[in-house]
Design a protein around this nucleic acid. Sequence first.
DNA 1: GTTTTTTGAGTAAACGTTTACGCAATAGTT
DNA 2: AACTATTGCGTAAACGTTTACTCAAAAAAC
Lengths: 330, 330
Amino acid sequence: MTITIKDIANRAGLSAASVSRILTNRGRFSEKTAQHVRQLADEMGYYKNQSAADLSQKESRVIGVLVPITHTNFADEIIKGMQGKATELGYELLIAFIASDNQQQLKTIKSLLSRQLLAVVMLAIEIKDNTFKVLENADILLLSVSNQLNNVMPSISSDNYSMMFTIVDYLYQKGHRQIALIGASDQHSTVANLRRQGFIDALLKHKINYNPDFIYGDENAYQTGLNAIQKFGKPLPFTAVIGSADIISIGLLNGAKDAGIKVPDDLSIITIDGTELTELTRPILTAAQQNFAKMGELAITTLAGQKLSPDTVVFTNITLKQGGTVAQLD
Amino acid sequence: MTITIKDIANRAGLSAASVSRILTNRGRFSEKTAQHVRQLADEMGYYKNQSAADLSQKESRVIGVLVPITHTNFADEIIKGMQGKATELGYELLIAFIASDNQQQLKTIKSLLSRQLLAVVMLAIEIKDNTFKVLENADILLLSVSNQLNNVMPSISSDNYSMMFTIVDYLYQKGHRQIALIGASDQHSTVANLRRQGFIDALLKHKINYNPDFIYGDENAYQTGLNAIQKFGKPLPFTAVIGSADIISIGLLNGAKDAGIKVPDDLSIITIDGTELTELTRPILTAAQQNFAKMGELAITTLAGQKLSPDTVVFTNITLKQGGTVAQLD
DNA sequence: GTTTTTTGAGTAAACGTTTACGCAATAGTT
DNA sequence: AACTATTGCGTAAACGTTTACTCAAAAAAC
């Protein structure tokens, strides 16, 4: 038998309403009785029935978080950032892992929407049309983190376009003139589109004539990196390569190692993301590091502000983290 | 304004009770009206208010899952396993990331307990005494997954004792007689204790005299592996080393590489866990692979069975996954 | 000392769903 | 045709909390 507010009220000789006011710290009550009640609640092992509370309250402080179940190692960092700010501002996170299977996906979303939510935050999810419809119809605040989705849904991410200038500038300054971009070919991904465009424009800026063959691979996977090296063969037609995610870059690195290509002597690699994974390779990967924790924090503060429209875009900065995979040429 | 069961009832010319019966598929109703109601619900964009449902139901089908926020790469696999079985059996997972900070930890637990839960599942969490007290007092089903906690709480894990026999047998058969164990020194961890004991007994079985110095390092971290190599120096006094977690083993591997020790020629490494991380190294790590997905599935089925006592222990099998880090001696 | 303001706490309704119970209408049995 | 069994659905209470409204008592103001 669970303890309710009424049990406490009885013991304290009060009404349930008074106990509620005290425990939620709202309305009027005397500090003296409050102390007594709080102590009783503690003693009796009382836990608020959140369902009942939710039901009687109009406004929700629960934020749903959709995380892809296919393991992305930066999701944790975003969540960590969110969690800190959330507890600070009195929000609660409801985390749901979402599968790629369409059937299960809808089930997850439905069960999320069954809870009264303030908003749904999607971490790096390329959302499918039918799933999106469901979310849109549910008229709930939506926010995409790490995945830039211009004009579809407000998002918090790095500036994927200008990020490529930072990267290309760096490689250029290190003497590289033949540069490939691996893992950003997906035409349906806004992020990939922005990265390709930024890449091309950045090359143009440096008067490097751009070779479309050097943009290869669309899947965010280890295998993409391995495949890329195999495809271009030895000797490679470029001196530097940009991996569009850490896991891709590790594929590039291992692919190179397997093919007898020395990194960074024969091939320079720079990776986008810069999660802790990049510390585990030899050499350590040089990275355009995204500030995932910051994205998480901003997600919460943005939602707290609530002035969101589909074209709201908040950018976080990237940092060039030196590793050992980029060589200075000549 | 959100759609409730009443709105549907009005439109259908029914009572709320009938709609509820239809949508929950309980009690009596005619298939004809049911179809109509289901269609209306769909059209009107109805989502059950789970809070209200929870409130009026005695039995909960929600299982809380406590996941350490410090990123363990097998947690995802366990969750994946749990999620599959959970949706299959009609349970719902409520995932909460738990920090190491004591204050936040209690906050997380409290908010978990505020939801009406069937059980709390803890993934690889070394629980602190005061946190455990809170959970224990809340009298809720508890289950520990991947962390074997004999007699404290029912648990699902590999058999950490006999696992060491499998590993040592394998290394012995490959000709190794000097073997170290890294990352299992923590005296307060049941798992570590079992692994040490198993390790020692397995050596004894092969009449290898056991050197206590060869058991080193207590933290489940990359740095532990690096440190171990540094501590023992070159040449290493052992020919094989067991890393008590993938991340430790990667530390060992990189530490060896940094020290100019060749793997597997100068040092054989076998890792415990065998997550996808082990595929990313060169050479690929040989692993005693735990079946995390299976643990997740068993967690749900065990809870569904509900015949749990603190000394319930369910074991999953381990698999020896050949990589390239163990050499055949002589 | 009277009037006004403030304070502490109770009453009751509300949130949206589920479910035990009851009843009329229909179907089934003889 | 008379009875029994079944079916479909409505009524109303219940779940535990919050909160607008009230009101008496206490405190403050005059």
